[in-house]
Write a protein that binds this DNA or RNA. Sequence first.
DNA 1: CGACATGTTGAGCCTGTTCAATAAACGTGG
DNA 2: CCACGTTTATTGAACAGGCTCAACATGTCG
Lengths: 215, 215
Amino acid sequence: MSAVKPHAMTRNFRKHETIFRAGDRAGCLYEVVKGSLFVYRLLDDGRRQVVDFVRAGDICGFTDGPEHSSTCEALEAATLLSHERCGLAANPELQDRLLRQIDQRVASLHDHAVALGRKTAAERVATLLMRLVSTNGPGHCPAPEKKGAAVKIHMPMTRGEVADYLGLSLETVCRTLTDMERHGLIAIGQRRGEIKIANLCRLCFVAKTDVCGRD
Amino acid sequence: MSAVKPHAMTRNFRKHETIFRAGDRAGCLYEVVKGSLFVYRLLDDGRRQVVDFVRAGDICGFTDGPEHSSTCEALEAATLLSHERCGLAANPELQDRLLRQIDQRVASLHDHAVALGRKTAAERVATLLMRLVSTNGPGHCPAPEKKGAAVKIHMPMTRGEVADYLGLSLETVCRTLTDMERHGLIAIGQRRGEIKIANLCRLCFVAKTDVCGRD
DNA sequence: CGACATGTTGAGCCTGTTCAATAAACGTGG
DNA sequence: CCACGTTTATTGAACAGGCTCAACATGTCG
């Protein structure tokens, strides 16, 4: 009903399609309905930092100033709801969701800063794997009912993308995953993006996420 | 007038006083009127990451879940407005300010992620110095009217705090600052926290902030 | 099936760390 | 205002984690 969501528009994106580019005029906020995106920045010499993963339920498109300073790309096929910023005032229901999103986004970005600033390569990789498990937001044990159980996860990004997210080199990500497999922490499937975590709690311990220790 | 700001309360904090601690129940948002704060997280082994600096006009206290996962401390004497979260719905004027803050906070956290993940020690230090110059938000040249001019700044934090913000060791921060002084980029004052930037554009170039290159 | 992208592994190097000693600045009380 | 203890800053030397460059293997998709 257009009365409820005055300026919302649904759009589908394929893997690797661009949602917005650094420099684009920033008129919209994007709400992920299905799939996932990632947001990155580039330095002129080509260095890249993935600053956020955005998943179903999350909102992105935030930017200071009239233009985007980051680029946003679909990590896998995704469905988005785009909301005109100018229609925000007239949409208190979206405002509500937006306010709830802030806490999640900020918490996620804080987690990321801790990983980038103070964690070792193994801790960073483990942290990411744990994040990929969690269906609940961060800050909750991803699977409290199956502590210590084995879980299969899908990692939709390449080693290079993981590296650029974790502030590591592609090779270090590779080596770290191989090491984890050697130590029996995970099993890397033959199909790309398939990883089996042998023991959640053990991985959580390596990640130093502090989440397991909270209860 | 209590009708305008139903649940707001002004409080003063001295340098190093704690605003909230990790684990505290998160009932309030804090708006900085004067001074500045910093927000950090600790790992159990003592590693610390400062995840955000919060300055006049900024809002902090965001957290996923019912408890704070970070600690917030006054960097220098500060005046804060605390707003009960439960009163937010009844305060559209604050909601507006809050929505505008999101863009700034997220942009600042993204900048920080780029620094932590992909910048060298010198680039990180330069980036911080540039941030301390800017009275305008990030994403704008801090002083477009005096490109290339000398500027005096006040750095209210210790080397250790800078290090924990930039994901470096205290010693590296020291050495980097000394190097910059040797190269004539900055002059470190005899009084603590006093730094003179010899040439803004040169420092901006070292910071690889991309801000100077935008126009 | 073949071409191309992605992933894995190795060797040597470099940036930033750690540990340790010294120096400078601050604040307090006389 | 100065002496003294404490905190913060600086500098040096050796080490190490992660990077770079390079070769090779494995998947994937047309």
